[in-house]
């Protein structure tokens, strides 16, 4: 992490960067994911078992992430 690589003359098309989730949908996507995560956490809290740990815990944590 000390020096720059020489900048090659890259042929850049007129292709602007588009994010995976567009700016207008950020709130709704994040809200739905958080809701799923909290619901699944609640389900896991009521029914703590070795099976529900991967079945409910994994999607809950992924949704939170």
């Amino acid at each position: 992490m000390s020096s720059f690589i020489p900048l090659a003359r890259v042929a850049v098309g007129d292709q602007p960067y588009e994010p995976f989730v567009s700016k207008n949908n950020q709130f709704i996507v994040a809200f739905v994911l958080l809701l799923i995560s909290l619901t699944l956490s609640g389900v896991f809290a009521l029914n703590r078992s070795l099976i529900s740990l991967p079945v409910v815990g994994v999607p809950a944590s992924l949704a939170f992430g």
Partner: peptide, 30 residues
């Protein structure tokens, strides 16, 4: 003008780290 490479795996590092942290919390609770 700044050029850089950004592998798609790098973009998922933070969500997966957070997911691992939350999952370890569930496991600890269990």
């Amino acid at each position: 003008l700044i050029t850089y490479d950004y592998p798609w795996t790098a973009g998922y590092r933070k969500p997966l780290t957070l997911a691992a942290a939350v999952f370890s919390l569930f496991a600890a609770v269990w």
